[in-house]
Design a protein around this nucleic acid. Structure first.
Lengths: 237, 237
DNA sequence: AATCGATTGAAACGATTGTTTGAACGCCTT
DNA sequence: AAGGCGTTCAAACAATCGTTTCAATCGATT
């Protein structure tokens, strides 16, 4: 009696205008933005309903209680995000180095994006930083396949000379370098001069840096600092 | 009339037992733990006072209101943390590679530590992830000098062949690799097998990996994967 | 012993929270 | 037109929040 499935939510009419008028998705969208901005505890159902333009009782009517609304909003944001930025597919024969570069670039674009990153990313970031019930599903559906793709690229790049464990460790190093700019972006902005942020710490230049950093560490490309001493020795020898 | 400085807080008697009996520091300690665990909004003054063993009115008496208590508790945690883990000092002539290794190892030990990391780190991490008023002070007093030390080590390591901007970018890459294990530790634990976590993703092995990764990227040490092709070319030449 | 200021205590304040209620509304079928 | 059903609404619910009040208590000075 508390939460019943409304009839008009049957998805036979998927018109965009119609979806915007559906109170259920309006609440989901507003809830996601509020939860992303303030977190679960701080966000209030009253603010959510006000943003969605519905009565406070609508939350209990459609979702039962606040907790289930949160879980549904995380799922909704996740699915919407998957639809927005699909995984890039490479033609067979694409060099692994190019795949790695594009992969890192895509990850950074998703995290930092142009201007304010969309609230879906903020919501997912909250789950990563402080997991709740919705976390495991998020990892299995979104993060794990993404990470597996990175490991596969690294495996191809090193021609199978590193174990899966080592590949995962290298992958985590790459993810970490992107992650810190998203999670600790404010502090980064305080440690690095403003003009330097805009010139070197935006997605494109960062992707080049992290890619080159990884390729050099793996011995696939030249290191950031040319090893003059060793070159000299080789020349002499 | 709302919050006046208590007389007995005069620090002429710094006995440890005496400090534990000082309601002011008891509240600061309890508040730090509560704020670290639940965040500013979720943590309640009632729980803090219950943990500190004082009356709810004590918060207003000693600190005025909850907001000022929070700022004071962040400062207190920060100062206590500085006292606990002082910066290591190296003898003149210590190789830069060894400095870098020890620096990364110390940073990881602080972040991950043995077992549960102390609540002070959690509190500081909250400020990094979502800065409040107490953030700027934290960055200036704690994070910026620490980061400057890393940049100095990298500068020495590369013998001045990289610009300060490039050094900062490399430094951020190193910090990011440590940071991700602290901030997204739960997700890392879901992506990597349990035994692999214990064998490869603990402070000591991680410090070796990240150090070697950095040294290889900078061209100071051999890459993770030996570049057979180029070696062969060199030998042929 | 008496007095004064610092500290503590229990209780209550007003505000806000998530949730529930029951009547009113809109739309469709009969 | 009438009724039924899904939906919306304003209002109120109990619980909890930060904060305040004021009397009781403690300790040192007079």
């Amino acid at each position: 009696m508390s939460s019943r499935t409304p009839i008009h939510s049957d998805p036979h009419l998927a018109d965009s205008r119609e979806e915007d008028r559906d109170p259920r998705v309006r609440i989901l969208s507003a809830a996601g933005q509020e939860f992303a901005e303030h977190g679960y505890e701080v966000a209030t159902v009253r603010d959510i309903c006000a943003a969605a333009g519905v009565n406070v009782a609508a939350v209990n009517y459609y979702f039962g209680d606040k907790r289930r609304l949160y879980i549904e909003s995380v799922k909704h944001a996740h699915e919407e995000r998957l639809r927005q930025v699909p995984q890039p597919e490479w033609a067979v024969g694409t060099p692994a180095t190019e795949k790695l570069h594009q992969f890192i670039d895509t990850m950074l674009e998703r995290m930092l994006g142009a201007g304010q990153p969309p609230w879906q990313v903020r919501l997912m970031m909250r789950e990563v930083l402080q997991p709740t019930e919705a976390c495991r599903e998020l990892v299995e559906d979104y993060i794990r396949p993404h990470f597996a793709m990175l490991v596969a690229i690294l495996d191809e790049l090193t021609a199978g000379m590193l174990s899966q464990a080592e590949l995962r460790r290298v992958g985590m190093s790459i993810v970490g370098q992107c992650f810190v700019y998203r999670a600790a972006g404010d502090v980064v902005g305080m440690l690095v001069p403003r003009d330097e942020i805009e010139s070197l710490h935006t997605p494109k230049p960062l992707a080049e840096h992290i890619t080159r950093y990884a390729l050099a560490a793996l011995g696939v490309a030249a290191p950031l600092v040319l090893p003059l001493v060793r070159v000299t020795k080789d020349v002499i020898a």
